[in-house]
Amino acid sequence: MHKALLAALLAVAFFVPQSSSRAAEGPALPAQAWSFKGAFGTYDRAAVRRGLQVYREVCAACHSLNLVAFRHLGDVGFQEAEIKAVAEAYKVKDGPDDAGDMFERAGRPSDYFPAPFANTKAARASNGGALPPDLSLMTKARKQGPDYVYALLTGFKAPPAGFSLMAGMNYNEHFPGRQIAMAPPLAEGALTFADGTQSSVSQMARDVTTFLSWTAEPEMEARKRLGVKVLLFLLVLTGLLYALKRAIWQKLH
């Protein structure tokens, strides 16, 4: 009985603080069926590609991706030539050269995604005072991150009657305070996917969320793969140790 009681108490002790530490703000986030969920989940490669396209053609206008280098794309199935092509599409500031001048050159795989603004002041000045956050870690930096990003991108609505929306703000029930400076970024057919997929708002939101989940946790696939092996090994080892313990203690009884 003690054992059961203690187990229950421990369960409460460890699980409760997590779920309760943020008072619910807005409606609950609907849980989406992500390809990368679960112990064997992986990033849907096609979705990552489409997500990169959404980031480059939509998000990148305002949001940086400072922690991600072009070469990292190799981890999610991009070939070297493709990575080079993505990198070369960007102008990167380099220097100083031998004359002491800074110069621009085409991006290389070793470069990081260039930020759209030179600094946070410039970013605020171009966005009505609001700072578009860096997206590299976004899905890790929010509770239920991927579900949150998806809900936010698809959650723009007309404000309910009586809601006073500040000038330049947009109503989004999943954003804390329900008003967000970002205008609805995704519109039906805003871009043409290279693989011919219909570019509905939910499709684009889903794909860019998959892409951003990869940028937040690029190690996830390697981590889960290694984890399965390690836990299987430990399970066998611990089983053997238990048998050994029983055998050795047998002599006492």
Binding site: T238, Y242, I248
Partner: peptide, 16 residues
């Protein structure tokens, strides 16, 4: 041996 077995269990949970 008893501690070794306990360590195995702890590692299973921690590494989980």
């Amino acid at each position: 041996v008893k501690d070794a077995f306990g360590l195995g269990v702890l590692m299973l949970v921690l590494l989980g």
